[in-house]
Design a protein around this nucleic acid. Structure first.
Lengths: 208, 208
DNA sequence: TGTGTTTCGATAAAATAATATCGATAACTA
DNA sequence: TAGTTATCGATATTATTTTATCGAAACACA
């Protein structure tokens, strides 16, 4: 167990977890770094290094004990103590995220959405509440929202970002295709769907 | 103009473009690497290196000419010749992507969706067609689909992936939270929304 | 025309990440 | 029990990415 974990390593950890869960279902109890490497298309040394940073030793000839590895991964990834998140923008993407059921197993509790349009207020398909934007200050005060997800059109993203920051939320996942300005102590992650696709298209062209 | 461009650089390029478009609207015609660096929170040397890889020289004391820089970025990012993409899965996320209007400006033409459930077939809100999955072979034969977007539940993702590969599509953007197996010549990019959020939550916890 | 300032590109250095090598250890087998 | 093999962790090497340094080019202004 080392102290610092690189962001590249962190990005790979969920894939280890997913793979381990899958093969545990198949009844496997021990797994070698080589097997993981082959399955996920990684170097086996890289796998060992990644795992060493969050879990205890594997055993020569045997490999790693799946259950404890899964436990350590879940613990590190925080898939136990839930973090609260809210969504801004109750359009297609916003409601898709609101009703997406894959967050819980990653330790995330997506609670509600906000939209500036009062007509959108009410409940989502899965029954989660949608509030108007001006209800945010009150709600933010009464509960501890850790993460904001921006799913509004680009032209309103900065505006919404400012409101989020004003209400003391310190982490933002931004789906709008614009660069957001915020104080340095606010963590912003950009998740631009169009850019991801565009990069894929560039890679594809480069390969030909 | 160098030959190889790192993927990290590629990820930054869309942000340069977005920023340049914004300040061009404000009437600016020349910009220095320093100004860009400050605006986007990057190192100015890094900005110069990134730009050098896709555009021609800036001029000392003046900086870069915005218009030609924008042109080079758009050209490199392929935002001119459109690439065709289709979506698999016409649930919330799938239809959100189908009706999302930010792809065109990134050179992507999201044409249609496929769903195994015939009840979903028809038209999306924005009028794009939704077909049943068994219509894919015919359609794939008659047109050149470059990119597939997987937006189906995790348990069906591999199955759909196999079908996509069988139909000759060589690039996949995968939104399902599973690792997909595919031949090596197929490019797969994983875009797992829950993991992105989880990473944000981990960073947040680490900061405290 | 000459001097100062800004900004560039190129090269060098430092930091980070990925990969290869190798001795050690634990299990299996004869 | 001794030898063989699979697998690990640690260390070393290589590759990649970021950051720093510095001379030169272009403009401003005396």
């Amino acid at each position: 167990m080392s102290d610092y974990i690189s962001s590249n390593t962190m990005k790979r950890l969920p894939f280890y977890l997913e793979y381990l869960l899958k093969i545990r279902d198949e009844g496997i109890v021990n797994v070698s770094s080589k097997a993981i490497a082959v399955a996920l298309n990684l170097g086996e040394v890289q796998v060992r290094k990644d795992l060493a940073s969050i879990s205890k030793n594997g055993r020569p000839k045997i490999g790693y004990e799946i259950n404890s590895l899964i436990g350590d991964l879940q613990k590190f990834l925080g898939y136990k103590d839930l973090t609260d998140a809210v969504i801004f923008g109750a359009g297609k993407l916003g409601t898709a995220l609101l009703d997406y059921n894959g967050f819980e197993e990653c330790g995330l509790n997506v609670l509600m959405a906000f939209d500036s349009n009062p007509k959108k207020a009410g409940k989502s398909d899965s029954g989660k509440p949608i509030y108007t934007l001006d209800e945010l200050p009150m709600i933010a005060k009464s509960m501890n929202i850790s993460i904001a997800i921006i799913a509004v059109p680009a032209q309103h993203a900065q505006e919404v970002c400012d409101i989020i920051v004003e209400n003391g939320i310190k982490a933002i996942l931004n789906f709008a295709p614009v660069h957001l300005d915020a104080p340095k102590d606010v963590i912003i992650k950009n998740e631009n769907l169009a850019y991801s696709l565009a990069l894929l298209s560039i890679e594809l062209k480069a390969k030909k």
